Lab assay of single mutants.
Amino acid sequence: MGFKLLSKLLVYLTASIMAIASPLAFSVDSSGEYPTVSEIPVGEVRLYQIADGVWSHIATQSFDGAVYPSNGLIVRDGDELLLIDTAWGAKNTAALLAEIEKQIGLPVTRAVSTHFHDDRVGGVDVLRAAGVATYASPSTRRLAEVEGNEIPTHSLEGLSSSGDAVRFGPVELFYPGAAHSTDNLIVYVPSASVLYGGCAIYELSRTSAGNVADADLAEWPTSIERIQQHYPEAQFVIPGHGLPGGLDLLKHTTNVVKAHTNRSVVE
């Protein structure tokens, strides 16, 4: 069995187990497998329904001669939608809004960016022009300005110390501490036991640490421990890039980060 097929099978099995364990909360999309990078042309966006009122959005972007996937989250909030992270750029984010209108038909009224990198804030200006209120932590807003990236308009308070959590509509926002970046936030959907790890969490097929220019490698494993301790009931975990899975993604990420750190020390 090929690795790609095995990865998709694991996603399907995880979703099936969740649907059985929580039949009222989960209505997993039966329309197909989780979209992969090879299936999404740059400039297009796919939506994948995880649970009743919960979707991931998947886009792709060219970077350094390669094409990478990027995940975000959409959560229903009454007759409105909360968006977590842009679709990595203005063109993708405009396509995301169009796809949401086509498939869901509810307005996106608020959006949260989970850290300051372009795959999370690139497209904020498109959201703002569409009347979406954009939010991020003060740290993310400051770092985005320093980096020359787009800056969300509103500040999220109460997320300055490791372990801080605040309720934001249908989700809980959690600051686990520094990891992929010093400002990275985690998003949890309690009604569906869905954990969105953003770039602080890796997919299972990833074996290298990737972009760690703004990471705190020493603190990252401790931050992941905080996530595990705060959300032990999480059933569906979405990484910032690639295929979702279960809580095993947290341990896998820790292993990859520690291996990278150990290699760096040896070198």
Results as ranks from 00 to 15, higher is better:
Met1Asp: 01
Gly2Leu: 11
Gly2Phe: 15
Phe3Pro: 06
Phe3Ile: 07
Leu6Gln: 08
Ser7Ala: 08
Lys8Ile: 08
Lys8Pro: 03
Leu9Tyr: 10
Leu10Gly: 12
Leu10His: 12
Val11Trp: 06
Tyr12Glu: 10
Tyr12Leu: 08
Leu13Cys: 13
Leu13Ser: 12
Leu13Tyr: 15
Leu13Thr: 13
Thr14Val: 05
Ala15Met: 07
Ala15Cys: 14
Ser16Cys: 15
Met18Leu: 12
Met18His: 11
Met18Val: 14
Met18Phe: 12
Ala19Phe: 15
Ala19Cys: 12
Ala19Met: 14
Ile20Lys: 15
Ile20Thr: 10
Ala21Cys: 15
Ala21Ile: 13
Ala21Pro: 06
Leu24Lys: 10
Leu24Tyr: 15
Ala25Lys: 14
Ala25Pro: 13
Phe26Thr: 11
Phe26Trp: 15
Phe26Tyr: 13
Ser27Thr: 11
Ser27Gln: 11
Ser27Val: 14
Ser27Lys: 10
Val28Met: 15
Val28Thr: 10
Asp29Phe: 07
Ser30Gly: 15
Ser30Pro: 08
Ser31Gln: 07
Glu33Gly: 12
Tyr34Lys: 15
Pro35Leu: 14
Pro35Gly: 14
Thr36Tyr: 09
Val37Gln: 15
Ser38Leu: 10
Ser38Phe: 09
Ser38Trp: 12
Ile40Trp: 15
Pro41Gly: 14
Val42Gly: 15
Val42Arg: 08
Val45Met: 03
Arg46Tyr: 11
Arg46Thr: 09
Tyr48His: 12
Tyr48Cys: 07
Gln49Asp: 12
Ile50Gly: 01
Ile50Val: 11
Ile50Arg: 02
Gly53Arg: 09
Gly53Asn: 11
Gly53Phe: 08
Val54His: 00
Val54Tyr: 00
Val54Met: 04
Trp55Pro: 03
Trp55Met: 00
His57Lys: 00
His57Ser: 03
His57Thr: 05
Ile58Leu: 15
Ile58Ala: 07
Ala59Trp: 04
Ala59Ser: 15
Thr60Arg: 07
Ser62Trp: 05
Phe63Val: 09
Asp64Thr: 08
Gly65Leu: 08
Gly65Ser: 10
Ala66Gln: 15
Pro69Gln: 14
Gly72Met: 02
Gly72Phe: 05
Gly72Trp: 02
Gly72Ile: 00
Leu73Phe: 04
Leu73Gly: 02
Leu73Trp: 00
Leu73Val: 04
Ile74Lys: 00
Ile74Leu: 07
Ile74Arg: 01
Val75Asp: 04
Arg76Trp: 06
Arg76Leu: 11
Asp77Gln: 04
Gly78Phe: 07
Gly78Gln: 09
Asp79Gln: 11
Glu80Asn: 09
Leu83Gly: 02
Leu83Arg: 01
Ile84Asn: 02
Asp85Met: 01
Asp85Cys: 00
Thr86Met: 00
Ala87Gln: 00
Ala87Val: 03
Ala87Glu: 00
Trp88Ile: 00
Trp88Leu: 00
Trp88His: 00
Ala90Ser: 11
Lys91Asn: 14
Asn92Arg: 04
Asn92Glu: 04
Ala95Gly: 10
Leu96His: 03
Leu96Ile: 05
Leu96Met: 08
Leu97Ile: 07
Glu99Ser: 14
Glu101His: 14
Glu101Asn: 12
Glu101Phe: 08
Lys102Gln: 10
Lys102Glu: 12
Gln103Lys: 14
Gln103Asp: 13
Leu106Val: 13
Leu106Trp: 08
Pro107Ala: 13
Pro107Ile: 10
Thr109Met: 10
Arg110His: 09
Ala111Cys: 07
Ala111Pro: 04
Ser113His: 13
Ser113Asp: 02
Ser113Leu: 04
Ser113Gly: 06
His115Thr: 00
Phe116Asp: 03
Phe116Gly: 03
Asp118Gln: 07
Arg120Val: 00
Arg120Asp: 02
Val121Trp: 01
Gly122Tyr: 07
Gly122Ile: 05
Gly123Leu: 04
Asp125Met: 08
Val126Arg: 05
Gly131Ile: 06
Val132Glu: 03
Val132His: 02
Ala133Thr: 13
Tyr135Gln: 00
Ala136Gln: 03
Ala136Trp: 04
Ala136Val: 04
Ala136Ser: 09
Ala136Glu: 04
Ser139Arg: 11
Thr140Pro: 02
Thr140His: 02
Thr140Cys: 05
Thr140Ser: 07
Arg141Met: 13
Arg141Phe: 03
Arg142Lys: 14
Arg142Glu: 13
Glu145Trp: 12
Val146Tyr: 13
Glu147Gly: 10
Gly148Met: 10
Glu150His: 05
Ile151Cys: 02
Pro152Trp: 00
Thr153Ser: 12
Thr153Pro: 05
His154Ser: 11
Ser155Cys: 06
Gly158Asp: 10
Leu159Asn: 01
Leu159Ala: 03
Ser160Trp: 10
Ser161Asp: 13
Ser161Leu: 12
Ser162Trp: 10
Gly163Phe: 06
Ala165Trp: 14
Phe168Arg: 02
Phe168Ala: 02
Gly169Val: 05
Pro170Lys: 07
Val171Ser: 02
Val171Leu: 07
Glu172Val: 06
Glu172Met: 07
Glu172Arg: 03
Leu173Pro: 07
Phe174Ile: 04
Phe174Tyr: 09
Tyr175Gln: 02
Tyr175Leu: 01
Pro176Lys: 01
Ala178Glu: 08
Ala178Trp: 07
Ala179Met: 06
His180Gln: 05
Ser181Lys: 03
Ser181Asp: 00
Ser181Thr: 15
Thr182His: 11
Thr182Trp: 10
Asp183Gly: 02
Asp183Val: 03
Leu185Gln: 02
Val187Thr: 02
Val187Tyr: 03
Tyr188Gly: 01
Val189Glu: 02
Val189Leu: 07
Val189Phe: 04
Pro190Tyr: 08
Ser191Asp: 13
Ser191His: 15
Ser191Thr: 11
Ser191Arg: 11
Ala192Trp: 05
Ala192Tyr: 07
Ser193Asp: 13
Val194Gly: 01
Val194Ile: 08
Leu195Asn: 01
Gly197Arg: 02
Gly198Met: 07
Gly198Leu: 04
Cys199Tyr: 06
Ala200Arg: 02
Ile201Tyr: 02
Ile201Met: 07
Tyr202Thr: 15
Tyr202Lys: 07
Leu204Gly: 14
Leu204Asp: 14
Leu204Glu: 15
Leu204Pro: 05
Ser205Pro: 10
Ser205Thr: 09
Ser205Asp: 13
Arg206Thr: 15
Arg206Leu: 15
Arg206Glu: 06
Ser208Ala: 10
Ala209Val: 09
Gly210Glu: 07
Gly210Phe: 04
Gly210Val: 05
Asn211Asp: 13
Ala213Lys: 11
Asp214His: 09
Asp214Ser: 07
Asp214Ala: 06
Ala215Asn: 05
Asp216Arg: 08
Asp216Gly: 06
Asp216Phe: 05
Leu217Asn: 03
Leu217Tyr: 02
Leu217Gln: 06
Ala218Thr: 11
Ala218Met: 14
Glu219Asn: 08
Pro221Ile: 11
Pro221Val: 10
Thr222Glu: 11
Ser223Gln: 02
Ile224Val: 11
Glu225Thr: 13
Glu225Tyr: 10
Ile227Gly: 03
Gln228Met: 13
Gln228Phe: 08
Gln229Ile: 14
Gln229Arg: 13
His230Thr: 12
Tyr231Ser: 01
Tyr231Asn: 07
Glu233Gly: 11
Glu233Thr: 11
Glu233Ile: 11
Gln235Ile: 15
Gln235Trp: 10
Val237Glu: 00
Ile238Glu: 00
Pro239Met: 00
His241Phe: 01
His241Asn: 03
Gly242Ser: 05
Leu243Glu: 15
Pro244Asn: 04
Gly246Cys: 04
Gly246Val: 04
Gly246Leu: 05
Leu247Ala: 13
Leu247Gly: 11
Leu247Ile: 11
Leu247Met: 14
Asp248Trp: 07
Leu249Ala: 01
Leu249Cys: 02
Leu250Met: 09
Lys251Leu: 12
His252Met: 01
His252Ile: 02
Thr253Gln: 01
Thr253Trp: 01
Thr254Phe: 14
Thr254Leu: 13
Thr254Asp: 15
Asn255Glu: 13
Val256Ala: 04
Val256Gln: 04
Val256Trp: 02
Val256Met: 06
Val257Asp: 02
Val257Lys: 03
Lys258Met: 11
Lys258Ile: 11
Ala259Leu: 09
Ala259Gly: 13
His260Ser: 12
His260Gln: 09
Thr261Leu: 11
Thr261Lys: 09
Thr261Tyr: 08
Thr261Ile: 12
Arg263Tyr: 11
Arg263Ala: 14
Ser264Pro: 10
Ser264Glu: 11
Val265Cys: 04
